[in-house]
Design a protein around this nucleic acid. Structure first.
Lengths: 254, 254
DNA sequence: GAATCGAAAATTATCTATAATTTGGAGGAA
DNA sequence: TTCCTCCAAATTATAGATAATTTTCGATTC
């Protein structure tokens, strides 16, 4: 296509960082959802791009060129534009009128903000879920914690962590609240992939067990306060950048 | 246009309930934002439809037909579809693949859910805003309360109420949190317009004054707890339906 | 008269093509 | 070198066409 002849190669190379198969295969972050068989093309593209943004395969600030995305997914620009609107609503992309769409940047302030929002909303969800928590549900949460222990890489650890939170919160039966929490988890996962340190697992898994222990004893207030502290703990470490310089990177570890 | 000849008239008649000028003119609910001069057409359509959905001009469950909307706004279906995605993300519309887009329905459970989310998030925002609140800001909040007293109809009262909340929360400087609160306010306003009772103003305005009084004395905890209760108070009243039967309608009044 | 089936119409979802606008950069002039 | 002009690329947006699906409505049957 002539359109692509003179474009900068940045976006293409970042797309190439993940195999095309992520379109068809179930990506790690989305493995909890049904494989979008009857989704619209727009939804499938949005999910695939979301996975790349969250995993860091596309860098913050990188432009998302609709024609390139359309060509890669074998679609036209119309569903691509719809996918962009969806990513924008999730806070994963920002668009300026007539200046295109970019992957959302993030800084320490946003990490803190997401952590506090998660604390507030997850505590709310937990308080409503608590009366409906059964031993079977708590066992599934414990299994997710074990899966976190066994995980060898960030992605599987992140998935286990997310499963833990989802399992204990879903019984609240508040769909809007759960959707908001999901979006915040997606943001958290972005931060996590950007600044990972393996020893953080230990602390997090300890918190998970303390939460489960409190819930098993019916101590909802204690569980809620551990959850709030757990989600607001911010990890911080230096990360080497492309230029060779280092900068601080931050993440929510829980 | 032939397309419209055989369609059901429900959607058209509800659209007709508000003048076309709402597209260009600044509607009540959006009067706080800049009139979208440099917005994209998709954003303008989304704002106009949001205003109609919130005000009740389009009923819950009503179908949003993209070709009809496109024709009314003098646009093509592409920006209309983008507007639909935006409304979907705000929780004002729901779309099923290949079955079109409908105005989101709501019930008591969702009213409660939104109220609790607002309580959690507005309390969070208030705690962060409190250190930055100046007498000038509190005076503006008090002026908004007066405007609520003076208002003669639901729309202006709603706008005054929303201004009050916005003025005392914006200084928190957390854009993602404020955007989430805005969406919840939009949902609240829908409920309010659906079930309005004038005497509710009194209670709400009393709460507003109590919050301001606490803030002026630096009693942030007290202000936060009044705010939480204030936002979670659910109004309830019977409403006569088209069929002549009555049903209970609920709203967040604050 | 009610229920069911099927065909026609409407609608969604998509693609292709194209106009208009804007950005960004290359190349020339002061 | 710096600034300006102009061109190419990218994006926004429209129009028209098509496939697939859903809805509607009428005919047939019980």
């Amino acid at each position: 296509m002539r359109v692509m002849l003179h474009c900068t190669q940045a976006a293409i190379s970042t797309f190439a960082a993940l195999p095309i198969s992520t379109l068809a295969a179930s990506p790690s972050y989305l493995s909890c959802m049904e494989s979008g068989k009857d989704d619209t093309i727009a939804v499938r593209i949005a999910k695939a791009l979301a996975e790349r943004i969250i995993s860091g395969a596309i860098e913050p600030g990188a432009r998302l060129r609709q024609d390139h995305v359309a060509e890669e997914f074998g679609a036209s620009h119309v569903p691509v534009r719809e996918a962009f609107r969806r990513l924008e609503a999730q806070g994963l992309a920002v668009s300026e009128a007539r200046r295109g769409v970019r992957v959302a940047a993030f800084d320490l302030d946003e990490v803190k903000e997401v952590a506090e929002m998660r604390a507030a909303l997850e505590v709310l969800a937990l308080r409503h879920a608590a009366p409906h928590l059964t031993p079977a549900i708590l066992d599934r949460a414990e299994e997710a914690t074990h899966a976190g222990d066994r995980s060898r890489d960030v992605r599987s650890w992140e998935e286990a962590n997310r499963t833990f939170h989802r399992v204990i919160l879903t019984p609240c039966g508040m769909p809007r609240l759960l959707a908001a929490i999901d979006d915040l988890h997606a943001a958290s996962a972005r931060f996590l992939f950007a600044a990972w340190r393996s020893q953080w697992e230990t602390r997090t898994d300890h918190d998970h067990r303390a939460i489960l222990s409190a819930l098993r004893q019916g101590q909802v207030d204690i569980a809620a306060s551990i959850l709030a502290r757990h989600v607001q703990w911010i990890g911080q470490r230096p990360v080497r950048m492309q230029s060779g310089a280092t900068r601080e990177a931050f993440t929510i570890v829980g």
